[in-house]
């Protein structure tokens, strides 16, 4: 029996990619564009999935895709420098090598959302894992009903992807609202928590899919506001963040109750996590 021409990829073995561009988005937040040395070796990514990125000699972290899924050869990741590995990643200059495993996980339910209104609620860096879904929604605009994007962050200086937000806000076929928790008086936009924007928006709750990503406490309150507005628990999807290590459900570091976030998520329907989110330190 002849050996296959290419062996199946070992999910634990990183490929090498090069940084092609580094962009400063907000305080401590950078976007890296990566080009794999062997682009054909990677499976296409879907909105909501993530890669494991390695800084050689430092460590490996899970980072969601934040780029356009149409451009599969340009891998875009937006990273906040919060620890040694993410900090080292944000300091990489163009040309630097990184290790890359992926794409992993279950992404946003783009097919399930077709024909329905889509409400996207993002908080802080949570806009990054949602951006590929937004690219897809706007690229295939005719497939969806109303599109509502609600984005909350700490202050005007912390707003991510400002250029795209402004472009999306300028569209006549989408409702886009941005709010910050606090601002100097020169800011003329909204101030207040993102959940307060939900009752102000126009969508059909019985025919809505909601995509939510942000700090867990913000997601809990966003879920409550969406359900108060009449959106069913089955139609609310969250992107969860846990301590993902192997990314393929072997190690159990990211176990969250009965699920492994890396393998079964990171995107889950809220109905599957109901009850778990309220548990402290799970």
């Amino acid at each position: 029996m002849a050996a296959p021409e290419t062996a199946p990829l070992d999910p634990m073995a990183p490929l090498v990619a090069r940084v092609t561009r580094r962009h400063h988005d907000a305080p401590e937040v950078f976007t890296l564009e990566l080009e794999p040395e062997d682009p054909g070796a990677l499976a296409p990514f879907a909105p909501g999935q993530f890669n494991m990125l390695t800084v050689f000699g430092v460590g490996e972290v899970p980072i969601s895709f934040s780029g356009d899924p149409v451009d599969q050869n340009r891998l875009v990741h937006t990273i906040r420098a919060v620890g040694p590995v993410s900090g080292a990643l944000t300091e990489l200059e163009p040309g630097a090598a990184v290790g890359l495993r992926g794409p992993f996980g279950v992404g946003w339910p783009m097919a399930e959302a077709e024909g329905k209104d889509v409400v996207v609620v993002a908080g802080g860096l949570g806009l990054a894992p949602l951006r590929p879904a937004l690219y897809r929604l706007f690229a295939e605009r005719e497939r969806y009903g109303k599109i509502v994007l609600l984005y909350g962050t700490r202050s005007p200086d912390d707003i991510l992807f400002r250029r795209e937000l402004e472009a999306w806000r300028g569209r006549l076929d989408a409702e886009v609202e941005v709010t910050v928790d606090h601002a100097m008086a020169a800011w003329h936009g909204n101030v207040g928590v993102v959940t307060t924007l939900i009752p102000r928006c126009s969508f059909d709750p019985a025919q809505t899919v909601a995509l939510v990503c942000g700090p867990e406490v913000m997601m809990r309150f966003a879920i409550a506001a969406l359900m108060d507005a009449g959106v069913a628990a089955d139609d609310i999807y969250l992107s969860m963040e846990r301590n993902m290590k192997c990314a393929v459900g072997f190690c159990g570091h990211c176990q969250f109750g009965p699920v492994f976030v890396c393998r079964d998520g990171p995107v889950f329907p809220y109905a599957r996590l109901r009850g778990l989110l309220a548990l402290k330190e799970l």
């Binding site: 401590e28 906040r80 919060v82 908080g123 802080g124 860096l125 909350g152 962050t153 700490r154 912390d158 928790d181 606090h182 207040g192 928590v193 959940t195 307060t196 942000g214 700090p215 406490v217 913000m218 309150f221």
Partner: peptide, 17 residues
């Protein structure tokens, strides 16, 4: 509602730990 919103703002959930 404003009390709840103020609590969330006080938590500074978007800040780094």
């Amino acid at each position: 509602e404003r009390l709840h919103a103020t609590r969330l703002q006080m938590l500074d959930v978007y800040g780094t730990k």
